[in-house]
Each structure stands twice: as C-alpha cells, then as structure tokens.
Design a protein around this nucleic acid. Structure first.
Length: 295
DNA sequence: AAAAGCAGCAACCGCTTCGAA
DNA sequence: TTTCGAAGCGGTTGCTGCTTT
C-alpha cells in the first residue's frame, strides 16, 4: 500500500469491458517481468488504457499463474460447502482453502450452481423431515447420528471436515490441473518460468510441515531473521517443493499443495522479498540474486 | 430458422480496511 | 490523530453462448 504520490497519473480515459488477448499479453508480460508493485502505475507502465483496479482484477482472476480452470471437483465442492457454512459469504477466505481458485470464481460457482443445489437439498430434507415427524414421533432427524451426507447428498462431514486445516487434494482427474500451468508440454515449462514469485502461489495451507512450526513458534522468520541477515539457524525446508527438480514449478507447487498448514502464519511471515533469498532449498532455477521478485 | 429465455462468467462498482505521510 | 490513496472484498451487472419454443 501507499504508492508514491508522484506516480499519480493524469486521469486518462480508461477502457472498459472484456480484455483483448493483446491487453492480456501486455499485462502478463509486465507483471511477470516487474511485478505489479503499485497497481495504479501498472497500466501506465504496461501501456494499457485500463485503470489499476481493472488490471489487478484481471491478473488475480485470470492471468495469475497457478490458476486452476475448469470444473470444480467434488472435494472442492465439499470444501466450499463446509467453509460457506462456517464463514458465510467470505469468498476470499473460502478461496484460501481452494488452491488455484479465485474468490470470484467460487462466488460465481456458488451463485450459479451450488446455491440451487443446496436449496434443493434443504427442501428435500425438510420434506423428508415432515414425513418422518408425521409417521414417527420417535425419530429426531437433527439429533440422529452424524448423517455423513451433505446438503447436496454427498458424504460431507468426514470428507470435508478433513479438509479443514488440511489441504485439498483433488482426485478427480478431469478437474485437477495439469502440473504445468504454462503453454506447451511440461518438459518445456521451465521456458516459461517467470522471474517473479507471487505470494498466491504459496497460498496457505499447502506448505509441508507448517503446523508444527507454527505451533512451536520456530521457523518464524522476520526480516532480521532471514538468511541474508547472517542467521545460521535459518532453514527454509517448507519450500522444498519449489526446488524444481523436474523443471516445473507448477508441478512442484501442486505437490506442495497436498500438505497441510497454517495459512495465516505463512502469509504473514513471508511477505518480504528478501525472505525468499534463502539459499539452495529454494527455487534452484531462479537466480536468487538477480531474478527473483516476491510480491 | 429465428426469437426468447436462461445460465455462466468476466468485469465493474462501491464500500471497507489498511498503511503511509 | 487525521487524511488520503491503494488494495481488498463482496454484491451486482451485463455480455455471450447455449437451449428451448
């Protein structure tokens, strides 16, 4: 937050509506190369006739690497249901538990699909309930043992609650993202490696072993604790997933996603660029001294 | 084949929160 | 402490393509 006031642009006429492929390309190229920094200056620097807000949204919802497209798998639906019950319409918070999905996507999915599904199921439930109460006063639906069925008729409590505090791992191959989110085959993914790391890629919940670290208070790094600050005890093992053994950070990222953890802590502790400059464990394909920007 | 209706999704709008000056 | 600008968030709108009549 807080861009230099000197960067305040003269109000240009901003384009609206759908983004053209050229605009996408410009924005993608610019952000991958420079990072977004202050969004209000992005359109100017990238040569776009959009406002910063629009650029930000386009990036977050569409261009950002690591985004999963396509149908939601059953596990994702379960997760949405569970967290929606817990959090309500806190789409961004729900999205934190669905790697590769945006809040906008989840919101749309909810409004266009799941809301109806849930309503229908509730209706059915009510119908069954009235049938039961009229036929047997002994049966209390609400106090009966855990139904193991969600409102949409899928086994939810066990499977879904298992996702709480643990990561999501889809088994539905149709909807599971390919291990590379970049054009071309996986072997060529490294060609597309950007020189920027985004906080979203490290989203939360998905870094191995962080519960323990968070619980113990160990491994919490601050600027002053970062390896460059000559802290010999520093370790960055949670980032092993990015070591790019197969040259595809997307795949590694996906694997990393399979592990549980503390989102808050991870987010709050890894927001500084210099914290990424952590030596061999991190992103071997990157030139940590020159190339990496963490946003 | 054309028009109307509908659903899905991308993008916009306005409010709130946050942080720097 | 106040003010102001940027970012974040959720609700809403509007476009597009598909289906139905």
């Amino acid at each position: 937050m807080g861009c230099k006031s000197s960067e305040k642009p003269i109000k240009p006429k901003h384009r609206k509506g759908l983004w053209s492929p050229e605009e996408d390309q410009r924005l993608r190229n610019y952000v991958l190369k420079h990072g977004h920094g202050c969004w209000s200056s992005v359109p100017k620097n990238a040569g776009l006739q959009r406002n910063g807000k629009s650029c930000r949204l386009r990036w977050i919802n569409y261009l950002r690497p690591g985004l999963k497209r396509g149908m939601f798998c059953k596990e994702e639906e379960d997760t949405i249901l569970t967290f929606h019950r817990m959090l309500g319409n806190k789409w961004s918070q729900i999205a934190q538990h669905l790697p590769g999905r945006t809040d906008n996507e989840i919101k749309n999915y909810w409004h266009s699909y799941m809301k109806k599904k849930v309503a229908k199921a509730e209706e059915m439930k009510a119908h069954i309930k009235t049938q039961y109460t009229s036929s047997s006063s002994d049966i209390n639906m609400d106090s009966s043992p855990s139904p193991k069925m969600s409102a949409i008729g899928v086994p939810i409590y066990n499977s879904v609650l298992g996702h709480v505090g643990k990561s999501l791992k889809c088994t539905d191959q149709e909807s599971v993202p390919q291990t590379c989110d970049f054009p071309g085959d996986q072997a060529n993914c490294s060609n597309f490696l950007p020189k920027v790391l985004f906080a979203e890629w490290l989203s939360l919940d998905h870094v191995h072993g962080w519960n323990n670290i968070a619980d113990s208070g160990e491994g919490l790094i601050s600027r002053s604790d970062a390896p460059n600050s000559h802290n010999p005890n520093f370790q960055f093992t949670p980032m092993h997933g990015f070591s790019s053994n197969d040259g595809t950070y997307g795949g590694q990222f996906h694997n990393v996603q399979s592990h549980a953890s503390s989102t808050e802590m991870f987010n709050s502790q890894f927001k500084f660029e210099d914290q990424f400059i952590s030596g061999d464990d991190v992103c071997r394909d990157f030139n940590m001294n020159n190339d990496v920007m963490y946003i």
